[in-house]
Design a protein around this nucleic acid. Structure first.
Lengths: 217, 217
DNA sequence: TCTTTGAGTGAACATATGTTTACTGCAGTA
DNA sequence: TACTGCAGTAAACATATGTTCACTCAAAGA
Protein backbone atom coordinates (compact mmCIF):
# COMPACT_ATOMS: atom_id res chain seq x y z
CA UNK A 1 0.00 0.00 0.00
CA UNK A 2 1.50 3.32 -1.08
CA UNK A 3 0.34 6.86 -0.51
CA UNK A 4 2.21 8.46 -3.41
CA UNK A 5 -1.09 9.27 -5.08
CA UNK A 6 -2.13 11.36 -2.13
CA UNK A 7 -0.89 14.87 -1.54
CA UNK A 8 2.84 14.58 -0.84
CA UNK A 9 3.60 15.31 2.77
CA UNK A 10 6.42 17.58 3.62
CA UNK A 11 6.80 16.11 7.09
CA UNK A 12 6.61 12.32 7.69
CA UNK A 13 3.31 11.15 9.06
CA UNK A 14 5.08 9.66 12.04
CA UNK A 15 8.33 10.70 13.58
CA UNK A 16 10.80 8.33 15.12
CA UNK A 17 9.33 8.00 18.62
CA UNK A 18 5.81 7.79 17.26
CA UNK A 19 6.86 4.90 15.06
CA UNK A 20 8.43 3.14 17.98
CA UNK A 21 5.31 3.56 20.06
CA UNK A 22 3.30 2.24 17.17
CA UNK A 23 5.12 -1.08 16.93
CA UNK A 24 5.16 -1.36 20.70
CA UNK A 25 1.42 -1.01 20.65
CA UNK A 26 1.27 -3.50 17.77
CA UNK A 27 3.05 -6.01 20.00
CA UNK A 28 0.61 -5.41 22.85
CA UNK A 29 -2.37 -5.74 20.55
CA UNK A 30 -0.94 -8.86 18.97
CA UNK A 31 -0.70 -10.52 22.38
CA UNK A 32 -4.29 -9.58 23.22
CA UNK A 33 -5.44 -10.78 19.83
CA UNK A 34 -3.79 -14.16 20.30
CA UNK A 35 -5.36 -14.50 23.74
CA UNK A 36 -8.76 -13.79 22.24
CA UNK A 37 -8.26 -16.90 20.18
CA UNK A 38 -8.42 -18.96 23.33
CA UNK A 39 -5.13 -19.31 25.16
CA UNK A 40 -3.67 -17.96 28.34
CA UNK A 41 -0.95 -15.35 28.28
CA UNK A 42 1.60 -17.88 29.48
CA UNK A 43 0.94 -20.02 26.44
CA UNK A 44 1.96 -17.32 23.98
CA UNK A 45 5.38 -17.45 22.39
CA UNK A 46 7.54 -14.49 21.56
CA UNK A 47 7.71 -15.55 17.94
CA UNK A 48 3.95 -15.78 17.58
CA UNK A 49 3.51 -12.34 19.05
CA UNK A 50 6.05 -10.75 16.74
CA UNK A 51 4.66 -12.61 13.74
CA UNK A 52 1.17 -11.34 14.52
CA UNK A 53 2.48 -7.83 15.00
CA UNK A 54 4.18 -8.01 11.63
CA UNK A 55 7.76 -7.66 12.82
CA UNK A 56 10.75 -9.95 13.09
CA UNK A 57 11.42 -11.77 16.42
CA UNK A 58 14.53 -9.75 17.23
CA UNK A 59 12.51 -6.54 17.17
CA UNK A 60 10.75 -7.66 20.31
CA UNK A 61 13.85 -6.93 22.37
CA UNK A 62 13.83 -3.29 21.30
CA UNK A 63 10.67 -2.94 23.40
CA UNK A 64 10.61 -5.55 26.17
CA UNK A 65 13.22 -7.67 27.89
CA UNK A 66 10.95 -10.72 27.80
CA UNK A 67 7.33 -11.75 27.37
CA UNK A 68 6.45 -11.24 31.02
CA UNK A 69 7.34 -7.57 30.76
CA UNK A 70 4.94 -7.21 27.91
CA UNK A 71 2.35 -8.76 30.23
CA UNK A 72 3.06 -6.14 32.86
CA UNK A 73 2.55 -3.43 30.27
CA UNK A 74 -0.84 -4.97 29.50
CA UNK A 75 -1.74 -4.90 33.18
CA UNK A 76 -0.82 -1.23 33.23
CA UNK A 77 -3.06 -0.51 30.24
CA UNK A 78 -5.88 -2.43 31.88
CA UNK A 79 -5.50 -0.45 35.08
CA UNK A 80 -5.90 2.80 33.18
CA UNK A 81 -9.01 1.44 31.56
CA UNK A 82 -10.53 0.43 34.90
CA UNK A 83 -9.92 3.87 36.32
CA UNK A 84 -11.79 5.32 33.37
CA UNK A 85 -14.67 2.98 34.10
CA UNK A 86 -14.93 4.29 37.64
CA UNK A 87 -14.83 7.85 36.40
CA UNK A 88 -17.60 7.19 33.89
CA UNK A 89 -19.81 5.66 36.55
CA UNK A 90 -19.01 8.41 39.02
CA UNK A 91 -19.99 11.23 36.73
CA UNK A 92 -23.42 9.95 35.79
CA UNK A 93 -24.45 11.75 38.95
CA UNK A 94 -26.15 9.55 41.49
CA UNK A 95 -29.91 8.97 41.67
CA UNK A 96 -29.34 6.24 44.28
CA UNK A 97 -32.22 4.01 43.18
CA UNK A 98 -31.83 3.74 39.41
CA UNK A 99 -28.06 3.98 39.79
CA UNK A 100 -27.60 0.24 39.96
CA UNK A 101 -29.09 -0.58 36.60
CA UNK A 102 -27.30 2.35 34.98
CA UNK A 103 -23.95 1.32 36.38
CA UNK A 104 -24.40 -2.24 35.21
CA UNK A 105 -25.24 -1.04 31.73
CA UNK A 106 -22.19 1.18 31.65
CA UNK A 107 -20.18 -1.79 32.82
CA UNK A 108 -21.54 -4.00 30.06
CA UNK A 109 -20.74 -1.43 27.44
CA UNK A 110 -17.27 -1.01 28.86
CA UNK A 111 -16.62 -4.73 28.67
CA UNK A 112 -17.78 -4.79 25.08
CA UNK A 113 -15.62 -1.83 24.16
CA UNK A 114 -12.56 -3.23 25.90
CA UNK A 115 -13.25 -6.90 25.40
CA UNK A 116 -9.65 -7.97 24.91
CA UNK A 117 -8.39 -6.13 27.96
CA UNK A 118 -11.14 -7.56 30.16
CA UNK A 119 -10.38 -11.00 28.84
CA UNK A 120 -6.78 -10.45 29.76
CA UNK A 121 -7.57 -9.24 33.27
CA UNK A 122 -10.07 -11.98 33.98
CA UNK A 123 -7.82 -14.80 32.83
CA UNK A 124 -4.62 -13.49 34.38
CA UNK A 125 -6.04 -12.49 37.75
CA UNK A 126 -6.02 -16.20 38.54
CA UNK A 127 -3.68 -17.18 35.75
CA UNK A 128 -0.44 -19.06 35.77
CA UNK A 129 2.26 -16.46 36.25
CA UNK A 130 2.47 -15.29 39.89
CA UNK A 131 4.04 -12.00 38.82
CA UNK A 132 1.23 -11.12 36.45
CA UNK A 133 -1.36 -12.35 38.90
CA UNK A 134 0.01 -10.15 41.65
CA UNK A 135 0.06 -7.15 39.31
CA UNK A 136 -3.57 -7.67 38.33
CA UNK A 137 -4.57 -8.09 41.96
CA UNK A 138 -2.90 -4.81 42.79
CA UNK A 139 -5.01 -3.03 40.17
CA UNK A 140 -8.08 -4.76 41.48
CA UNK A 141 -7.34 -3.65 45.03
CA UNK A 142 -6.77 -0.13 43.83
CA UNK A 143 -10.11 -0.27 42.06
CA UNK A 144 -11.97 -1.50 45.10
CA UNK A 145 -10.35 1.11 47.38
CA UNK A 146 -11.38 3.84 45.00
CA UNK A 147 -14.88 2.44 44.88
CA UNK A 148 -15.06 2.52 48.67
CA UNK A 149 -13.94 6.12 48.61
CA UNK A 150 -16.56 7.06 46.06
CA UNK A 151 -19.28 5.29 48.04
CA UNK A 152 -18.37 7.10 51.23
CA UNK A 153 -18.24 10.42 49.43
CA UNK A 154 -21.60 9.82 47.79
CA UNK A 155 -23.14 8.81 51.10
CA UNK A 156 -24.15 5.37 49.90
CA UNK A 157 -24.16 2.80 52.69
CA UNK A 158 -23.71 5.39 55.44
CA UNK A 159 -24.21 2.84 58.21
CA UNK A 160 -21.03 0.92 57.46
CA UNK A 161 -17.71 1.24 59.25
CA UNK A 162 -14.86 1.78 56.85
CA UNK A 163 -13.71 -1.78 57.45
CA UNK A 164 -17.15 -3.09 56.55
CA UNK A 165 -17.24 -0.79 53.56
CA UNK A 166 -13.95 -2.18 52.25
CA UNK A 167 -15.19 -5.70 52.76
CA UNK A 168 -18.38 -4.90 50.85
CA UNK A 169 -16.52 -3.31 47.97
CA UNK A 170 -14.23 -6.32 47.73
CA UNK A 171 -17.34 -8.44 47.44
CA UNK A 172 -18.75 -6.15 44.77
CA UNK A 173 -15.53 -6.32 42.79
CA UNK A 174 -15.48 -10.11 43.05
CA UNK A 175 -19.02 -10.15 41.69
CA UNK A 176 -18.02 -7.80 38.90
CA UNK A 177 -15.13 -10.05 37.88
CA UNK A 178 -17.34 -13.08 38.00
CA UNK A 179 -19.96 -11.34 35.89
CA UNK A 180 -17.35 -10.17 33.39
CA UNK A 181 -16.06 -13.67 32.90
CA UNK A 182 -19.60 -14.85 32.23
CA UNK A 183 -20.38 -12.07 29.79
CA UNK A 184 -17.18 -12.74 27.87
CA UNK A 185 -18.26 -16.33 27.40
CA UNK A 186 -21.78 -15.62 26.16
CA UNK A 187 -22.32 -16.51 22.49
CA UNK A 188 -22.31 -13.36 20.37
CA UNK A 189 -25.47 -11.73 19.02
CA UNK A 190 -27.88 -13.25 21.49
CA UNK A 191 -29.37 -10.14 23.04
CA UNK A 192 -31.73 -12.23 25.15
CA UNK A 193 -28.83 -13.87 26.97
CA UNK A 194 -27.27 -10.49 27.51
CA UNK A 195 -30.46 -9.11 29.01
CA UNK A 196 -30.62 -12.08 31.35
CA UNK A 197 -27.02 -11.38 32.28
CA UNK A 198 -27.87 -7.77 33.12
CA UNK A 199 -30.83 -8.83 35.22
CA UNK A 200 -28.91 -11.46 37.15
CA UNK A 201 -26.03 -9.10 37.79
CA UNK A 202 -28.33 -6.30 38.97
CA UNK A 203 -30.08 -8.71 41.31
CA UNK A 204 -26.81 -9.89 42.79
CA UNK A 205 -25.68 -6.35 43.44
CA UNK A 206 -29.06 -5.45 44.91
CA UNK A 207 -28.78 -8.42 47.24
CA UNK A 208 -25.38 -7.20 48.36
CA UNK A 209 -26.65 -3.68 49.00
CA UNK A 210 -29.64 -5.02 50.89
CA UNK A 211 -27.18 -6.94 53.03
CA UNK A 212 -25.06 -3.86 53.53
CA UNK A 213 -28.09 -1.90 54.69
CA UNK A 214 -28.98 -4.59 57.21
CA UNK A 215 -25.38 -4.88 58.42
CA UNK A 216 -24.78 -4.44 62.16
CA UNK A 217 -21.63 -4.42 64.33
CA UNK B 1 15.18 -51.23 44.65
CA UNK B 2 14.44 -54.94 44.98
CA UNK B 3 12.06 -56.78 47.23
CA UNK B 4 13.72 -60.20 46.99
CA UNK B 5 14.63 -60.02 50.67
CA UNK B 6 10.96 -59.75 51.59
CA UNK B 7 8.62 -62.68 51.66
CA UNK B 8 8.19 -63.78 48.06
CA UNK B 9 4.75 -62.93 46.83
CA UNK B 10 2.80 -65.46 44.91
CA UNK B 11 0.70 -62.77 43.24
CA UNK B 12 2.21 -59.49 41.93
CA UNK B 13 1.54 -56.44 44.06
CA UNK B 14 -0.15 -54.78 41.14
CA UNK B 15 -1.85 -56.42 38.23
CA UNK B 16 -1.90 -55.05 34.74
CA UNK B 17 -4.82 -52.63 35.00
CA UNK B 18 -3.68 -51.39 38.40
CA UNK B 19 -0.28 -50.55 36.94
CA UNK B 20 -1.91 -48.71 34.10
CA UNK B 21 -4.07 -46.68 36.46
CA UNK B 22 -0.98 -45.90 38.47
CA UNK B 23 0.92 -44.27 35.61
CA UNK B 24 -2.23 -42.50 34.49
CA UNK B 25 -2.51 -41.01 37.91
CA UNK B 26 1.20 -40.17 37.82
CA UNK B 27 0.55 -38.16 34.66
CA UNK B 28 -2.35 -36.31 36.29
CA UNK B 29 -0.30 -35.56 39.39
CA UNK B 30 2.65 -34.46 37.29
CA UNK B 31 0.48 -31.90 35.52
CA UNK B 32 -0.88 -30.55 38.82
CA UNK B 33 2.63 -30.43 40.24
CA UNK B 34 3.91 -28.40 37.32
CA UNK B 35 0.98 -26.00 37.63
CA UNK B 36 1.80 -25.51 41.30
CA UNK B 37 5.13 -24.16 40.16
CA UNK B 38 3.36 -21.21 38.64
CA UNK B 39 2.08 -21.78 35.12
CA UNK B 40 -1.28 -22.26 33.54
CA UNK B 41 -2.37 -25.61 32.21
CA UNK B 42 -2.07 -24.39 28.64
CA UNK B 43 1.58 -23.63 29.17
CA UNK B 44 2.48 -27.22 30.02
CA UNK B 45 4.10 -29.41 27.40
CA UNK B 46 3.49 -33.08 26.91
CA UNK B 47 7.17 -33.81 27.31
CA UNK B 48 7.44 -31.99 30.61
CA UNK B 49 4.46 -33.85 31.98
CA UNK B 50 5.81 -37.25 31.00
CA UNK B 51 9.29 -36.35 32.28
CA UNK B 52 7.84 -35.34 35.63
CA UNK B 53 5.77 -38.51 35.76
CA UNK B 54 8.88 -40.54 35.08
CA UNK B 55 7.83 -42.06 31.78
CA UNK B 56 8.84 -41.60 28.17
CA UNK B 57 6.84 -39.16 25.97
CA UNK B 58 5.30 -41.88 23.84
CA UNK B 59 3.70 -43.43 26.90
CA UNK B 60 1.41 -40.43 27.16
CA UNK B 61 -0.61 -41.63 24.18
CA UNK B 62 -1.44 -44.90 25.93
CA UNK B 63 -3.59 -42.81 28.30
CA UNK B 64 -4.73 -39.62 26.57
CA UNK B 65 -5.10 -38.53 22.97
CA UNK B 66 -3.65 -35.10 23.77
CA UNK B 67 -2.92 -32.75 26.65
CA UNK B 68 -6.41 -31.24 26.65
CA UNK B 69 -7.92 -34.63 27.41
CA UNK B 70 -5.70 -34.92 30.43
CA UNK B 71 -7.09 -31.54 31.45
CA UNK B 72 -10.64 -32.85 31.17
CA UNK B 73 -9.69 -35.76 33.40
CA UNK B 74 -8.44 -33.26 35.95
CA UNK B 75 -11.74 -31.39 35.79
CA UNK B 76 -13.51 -34.67 36.44
CA UNK B 77 -11.35 -35.37 39.50
CA UNK B 78 -11.97 -31.85 40.75
CA UNK B 79 -15.71 -32.29 40.35
CA UNK B 80 -15.64 -35.39 42.51
CA UNK B 81 -13.72 -33.48 45.13
CA UNK B 82 -16.23 -30.62 45.17
CA UNK B 83 -19.10 -33.02 45.64
CA UNK B 84 -17.31 -34.44 48.65
CA UNK B 85 -16.95 -30.94 50.03
CA UNK B 86 -20.71 -30.40 49.81
CA UNK B 87 -21.32 -33.73 51.49
CA UNK B 88 -18.95 -32.88 54.33
CA UNK B 89 -20.65 -29.55 54.94
CA UNK B 90 -24.10 -31.09 54.67
CA UNK B 91 -23.49 -33.74 57.27
CA UNK B 92 -22.23 -31.46 60.02
CA UNK B 93 -25.94 -31.13 60.81
CA UNK B 94 -27.20 -27.58 60.71
CA UNK B 95 -27.27 -25.22 63.67
CA UNK B 96 -28.19 -22.34 61.37
CA UNK B 97 -26.31 -19.64 63.31
CA UNK B 98 -22.84 -21.13 63.89
CA UNK B 99 -23.09 -22.98 60.60
CA UNK B 100 -21.43 -20.22 58.65
CA UNK B 101 -18.14 -20.21 60.53
CA UNK B 102 -18.04 -24.00 60.57
CA UNK B 103 -18.61 -24.25 56.84
CA UNK B 104 -15.90 -21.73 56.12
CA UNK B 105 -13.46 -23.66 58.29
CA UNK B 106 -14.31 -26.89 56.54
CA UNK B 107 -13.81 -25.08 53.26
CA UNK B 108 -10.41 -23.79 54.31
CA UNK B 109 -9.30 -27.25 55.36
CA UNK B 110 -10.57 -28.68 52.10
CA UNK B 111 -8.59 -26.17 50.09
CA UNK B 112 -5.47 -27.00 52.05
CA UNK B 113 -5.98 -30.72 51.59
CA UNK B 114 -6.69 -30.40 47.88
CA UNK B 115 -4.51 -27.42 47.16
CA UNK B 116 -3.38 -28.53 43.69
CA UNK B 117 -6.89 -29.33 42.51
CA UNK B 118 -8.25 -26.01 43.74
CA UNK B 119 -5.40 -24.23 42.07
CA UNK B 120 -6.31 -26.02 38.87
CA UNK B 121 -10.00 -25.17 39.12
CA UNK B 122 -9.42 -21.54 40.01
CA UNK B 123 -6.94 -20.90 37.22
CA UNK B 124 -8.78 -22.84 34.53
CA UNK B 125 -12.29 -21.56 35.28
CA UNK B 126 -11.17 -18.37 33.55
CA UNK B 127 -8.14 -19.86 31.87
CA UNK B 128 -7.11 -19.96 28.27
CA UNK B 129 -8.67 -23.08 26.82
CA UNK B 130 -12.40 -22.62 26.12
CA UNK B 131 -12.99 -26.36 26.36
CA UNK B 132 -11.46 -26.65 29.81
CA UNK B 133 -13.13 -23.46 30.92
CA UNK B 134 -16.53 -24.73 29.87
CA UNK B 135 -15.94 -28.02 31.67
CA UNK B 136 -14.99 -26.27 34.90
CA UNK B 137 -18.02 -24.00 34.63
CA UNK B 138 -20.24 -27.04 34.26
CA UNK B 139 -18.92 -28.46 37.52
CA UNK B 140 -19.37 -25.10 39.15
CA UNK B 141 -22.98 -24.89 38.01
CA UNK B 142 -23.59 -28.40 39.24
CA UNK B 143 -22.15 -27.40 42.58
CA UNK B 144 -24.29 -24.32 42.89
CA UNK B 145 -27.48 -26.23 41.90
CA UNK B 146 -26.75 -28.80 44.55
CA UNK B 147 -26.15 -26.08 47.07
CA UNK B 148 -29.51 -24.53 46.24
CA UNK B 149 -31.14 -27.90 46.72
CA UNK B 150 -29.50 -28.39 50.08
CA UNK B 151 -30.51 -24.91 51.20
CA UNK B 152 -34.10 -25.47 50.28
CA UNK B 153 -34.14 -28.85 51.97
CA UNK B 154 -32.59 -27.42 55.13
CA UNK B 155 -35.07 -24.58 55.17
CA UNK B 156 -32.42 -21.87 54.99
CA UNK B 157 -33.62 -18.76 53.20
CA UNK B 158 -37.24 -19.88 53.09
CA UNK B 159 -38.46 -16.56 51.76
CA UNK B 160 -36.74 -16.89 48.42
CA UNK B 161 -38.29 -18.01 45.17
CA UNK B 162 -36.30 -20.78 43.53
CA UNK B 163 -35.06 -18.30 40.94
CA UNK B 164 -33.81 -15.99 43.67
CA UNK B 165 -32.30 -18.94 45.48
CA UNK B 166 -30.33 -19.97 42.41
CA UNK B 167 -29.13 -16.42 41.93
CA UNK B 168 -28.02 -16.28 45.56
CA UNK B 169 -26.16 -19.57 45.36
CA UNK B 170 -24.39 -18.42 42.21
CA UNK B 171 -23.27 -15.38 44.16
CA UNK B 172 -22.11 -17.57 47.03
CA UNK B 173 -20.13 -19.79 44.68
CA UNK B 174 -18.53 -16.76 43.06
CA UNK B 175 -17.51 -15.55 46.49
CA UNK B 176 -16.12 -19.00 47.32
CA UNK B 177 -14.01 -19.04 44.16
CA UNK B 178 -12.76 -15.57 44.84
CA UNK B 179 -11.89 -16.51 48.41
CA UNK B 180 -10.14 -19.68 47.28
CA UNK B 181 -7.95 -17.78 44.86
CA UNK B 182 -6.97 -15.41 47.67
CA UNK B 183 -6.21 -18.19 50.14
CA UNK B 184 -4.06 -19.98 47.58
CA UNK B 185 -1.97 -16.85 47.21
CA UNK B 186 -1.40 -16.20 50.91
CA UNK B 187 2.21 -16.72 52.02
CA UNK B 188 2.54 -20.03 53.85
CA UNK B 189 2.80 -20.31 57.63
CA UNK B 190 1.22 -16.98 58.45
CA UNK B 191 -1.69 -18.04 60.61
CA UNK B 192 -2.65 -14.43 61.24
CA UNK B 193 -3.32 -13.81 57.55
CA UNK B 194 -5.33 -17.01 57.41
CA UNK B 195 -7.46 -15.94 60.35
CA UNK B 196 -8.10 -12.62 58.66
CA UNK B 197 -9.06 -14.52 55.54
CA UNK B 198 -11.59 -16.58 57.51
CA UNK B 199 -13.06 -13.49 59.09
CA UNK B 200 -13.39 -11.60 55.84
CA UNK B 201 -14.94 -14.56 54.09
CA UNK B 202 -17.42 -15.16 56.92
CA UNK B 203 -18.40 -11.50 56.85
CA UNK B 204 -18.97 -11.56 53.12
CA UNK B 205 -21.19 -14.62 53.38
CA UNK B 206 -23.07 -13.09 56.30
CA UNK B 207 -23.67 -9.98 54.23
CA UNK B 208 -25.07 -12.11 51.44
CA UNK B 209 -27.38 -13.98 53.78
CA UNK B 210 -28.56 -10.73 55.34
CA UNK B 211 -29.36 -9.57 51.85
CA UNK B 212 -31.18 -12.80 51.09
CA UNK B 213 -33.29 -12.40 54.23
CA UNK B 214 -34.24 -8.86 53.23
CA UNK B 215 -34.98 -9.89 49.64
CA UNK B 216 -38.45 -9.04 48.26
CA UNK B 217 -40.21 -9.70 44.93
C1' DT C 1 2.85 -75.09 28.88
C1' DC C 2 2.72 -71.91 24.90
C1' DT C 3 0.61 -67.77 22.84
C1' DT C 4 -1.23 -63.30 22.79
C1' DT C 5 -1.79 -58.69 24.37
C1' DG C 6 -0.55 -54.20 25.38
C1' DA C 7 2.00 -50.79 28.70
C1' DG C 8 6.20 -48.77 28.48
C1' DT C 9 10.72 -47.98 25.63
C1' DG C 10 14.20 -45.72 22.56
C1' DA C 11 15.22 -43.52 18.55
C1' DA C 12 14.11 -40.68 14.86
C1' DC C 13 11.59 -36.91 12.38
C1' DA C 14 10.14 -32.28 11.27
C1' DT C 15 9.01 -28.21 13.21
C1' DA C 16 8.87 -24.30 16.72
C1' DT C 17 11.14 -21.87 20.06
C1' DG C 18 14.36 -17.97 22.58
C1' DT C 19 18.40 -15.37 21.84
C1' DT C 20 22.53 -13.40 19.61
C1' DT C 21 24.95 -11.37 15.86
C1' DA C 22 26.16 -8.26 12.26
C1' DC C 23 23.58 -5.63 9.03
C1' DT C 24 20.73 -1.71 6.71
C1' DG C 25 18.57 2.42 5.91
C1' DC C 26 16.33 6.43 7.42
C1' DA C 27 14.99 10.25 10.83
C1' DG C 28 17.22 13.67 13.76
C1' DT C 29 21.12 16.57 14.51
C1' DA C 30 25.31 19.27 13.85
C1' DT D 1 25.07 18.63 3.59
C1' DA D 2 27.32 14.99 6.03
C1' DC D 3 27.13 12.21 10.30
C1' DT D 4 25.23 9.47 13.85
C1' DG D 5 21.88 6.75 16.48
C1' DC D 6 18.80 3.36 16.62
C1' DA D 7 14.25 0.78 15.06
C1' DG D 8 13.78 -2.98 12.38
C1' DT D 9 16.10 -6.94 9.55
C1' DA D 10 18.10 -11.48 8.15
C1' DA D 11 20.36 -15.40 9.34
C1' DA D 12 22.20 -18.59 12.36
C1' DC D 13 22.44 -21.29 16.77
C1' DA D 14 21.16 -24.64 20.20
C1' DT D 15 17.47 -26.51 22.30
C1' DA D 16 12.50 -28.06 23.08
C1' DT D 17 8.51 -29.69 21.17
C1' DG D 18 4.58 -33.20 19.26
C1' DT D 19 4.14 -37.45 16.97
C1' DT D 20 5.48 -41.91 14.76
C1' DC D 21 7.48 -46.35 14.63
C1' DA D 22 9.24 -50.77 15.54
C1' DC D 23 10.70 -52.88 19.75
C1' DT D 24 10.56 -55.56 24.38
C1' DC D 25 9.11 -58.30 27.85
C1' DA D 26 5.95 -59.56 31.55
C1' DA D 27 1.22 -60.56 32.77
C1' DA D 28 -3.25 -62.72 31.24
C1' DG D 29 -5.50 -66.30 28.91
C1' DA D 30 -5.46 -70.72 25.99
Amino acid sequence: MSNIALAPETAPLLNRTERKLRTRSALLSAALELMSEGRGFGALSLREITARAGVVPATFYRHFANVDELGLALVEESGVMLRRLLRDVRRTGLPPTAMLLTSVKIYRQFIEEHRAHFLFVVTERSGGSPILRAAVRREELHFSHEMALDSRQAGLMPGLSSQALEMTCTLVVATMMFAASELLDLPKNQPKLETEWVERFVRQLRLIFLGARAWRE
